[in-house]
């Protein structure tokens, strides 16, 4: 039972951390709960489909199907985080100003709510499919009673959700005035980490050269398999033993999202100054 709980916890943790972070980053956006829940629902449905088709997926693309699917889902999340972040760099300050007026609805043009749905769906799908395969294997092998399986499964899931909730609550302690700026940078690192993970899958499928199998090893300081290591792995892309191309993917993603984020913020600051000059 404990073994089941531990495995389910590990699978649920990454999804829960990503969803908790996205929830904090979208604090105060009306309707965000509905859009994120829809994403989790789509992800769970997708997880069952992927698990059912696991054999076909694995054999697709000359045996690289599973890695390509994992990389595609990760990169979809990266793209959506890029969209969300660049949009927020433009509108975050207005949102913070409005959110401070308690009870005031936030009204800003088109919001990237579909991005939130897609990020939640991507996070749930990947880990969910593995969970379905694991649980169905346990059920088929009859190693455990149904009660032990259910308790272990629910316990692990609950543990993941509690950790995600704790991250959410912790992030919301950041003062509102600064919340969206801090979350922008955190989501940037999250996206970079997901890119590096995607690169890892493409190395495994021999679609990318490793460019150095293991450039350094910091696992003696922080193992990637410890709880803190796993949390940092998801949130900021900590990898104890990175391959060269993973570092490239990490840095390239920071540049590709961070530069437009800065540009948007600068443009906005300039526009604000011009407005003030015109008004006086």
């Amino acid at each position: 039972m404990l073994a089941i709980a531990v495995i389910i916890f590990r699978e649920a943790l990454e999804a829960a951390l990503i969803i908790g972070t996205v929830m904090a980053a979208s604090f105060g956006i009306p309707g965000r709960n509905r859009w994120i829940s829809a994403g989790v629902g789509i992800g769970i449905l997708g997880a069952f489909i992927v698990a059912l088709a696991a054999g076909e997926i694995a054999m697709a693309f000359a045996g690289a199907g599973q890695e390509l699917l994992n990389a595609a889902v990760l990169l979809l999340a990266v793209g959506m985080l890029a969209w969300h972040n660049i949009w927020m760099a433009r509108h975050g300050a207005e949102m913070a100003a409005q959110a401070r007026q308690v009870g005031e609805a936030i009204r800003i043009g088109a919001r990237p709510l579909t991005a939130l749905t897609a990020i939640a769906a991507a996070a749930t799908l990947r880990e969910g499919a593995e969970t379905v395969l694991f649980i169905s294997g346990i059920a088929a092998s009859a190693d455990e009673t149904i009660l032990a399986m259910t308790l272990g499964g629910l316990g692990g899931l609950l543990g993941g959700i509690v950790t995600g909730g704790a991250i959410y609550a912790g992030l919301l302690r950041i003062p509102l005035a600064r919340l969206f700026t801090v979350m922008g940078w955190l989501l940037l690192l999250l996206a970079a980490g997901l890119s590096a993970q995607a690169a890892g899958f493409l190395i495994q499928a021999d679609l990318l050269p490793a460019l150095g199998d293991q450039l350094w090893d910091t696992s003696f300081i922080l193992s990637e398999k410890s709880l803190l290591g796993r949390i940092l792995h998801t949130l900021i892309g900590y990898v104890a033993r990175p391959a060269g191309v993973q570092i490239l993917a990490y840095v390239a993603t920071i540049a590709a999202i961070g530069v437009p984020m800065r540009l948007m913020a600068l443009l906005k600051a300039k526009a604000a100054t011009t407005d003030r000059v015109n008004a006086s």
């Binding site: 890029a82 996206a191 990318l208 590709a256």
Partner: peptide
Amino acid sequence: VLGAALLAAL
């Protein structure tokens, strides 16, 4: 940007 991110990663 999305395109660039994808290209950069691949």
